[in-house]
């Protein structure tokens, strides 16, 4: 068994499920948004903003953001372990990625629930 501490779950199986489950959430979210736009040909700011005032839509969106964050992390972690062999550069890159994902996630939640 190969151990690797920079993998959050340390389980390939969990990573694998997370990646697939998050992909499903993002797909559903995308289909919903595209459908919403198509069914509202005269979409204006008020309607759009109204949609995101709904609690269920905010929860749905947060779910999609979290999925994106998880999906991105699993994918980029894999890429860094594949291609970046020097440990210090790899850990540094991974730290930057984690920070960026965290910032984007917090920012997204702020946009949804803030103001």
């Amino acid at each position: 068994m190969v151990t690797n501490i920079t993998s959050f779950s340390r389980s390939g199986l969990s990573d694998w499920i997370i990646q697939r489950a998050s992909a499903v959430v993002m797909a559903v979210y995308t289909v919903f948004l595209v459908g919403y736009v198509l069914f509202h040909p005269q979409l204006d700011y008020a309607t759009w903003s109204g949609l995101f005032q709904q609690t269920w839509m905010r929860i749905f969106s947060v779910l999609a953001f979290v999925s994106l964050a998880a999906h991105a992390w699993v994918g980029l972690w894999t890429v860094t372990t594949d291609y970046i062999k020097p440990t210090c550069i790899r850990v540094a890159t991974q730290s930057v990625i984690i920070l960026a994902i965290f910032v984007f996630l917090v920012w997204g939640i702020q946009v949804l629930w803030g103001a």
Partner: peptide
């Protein structure tokens, strides 16, 4: 199976 569930052995 437990020897294979890490992120590398199979899941790469």
């Amino acid at each position: 199976l437990s020897d294979l569930e890490d992120p590398f052995s199979v899941f790469r």
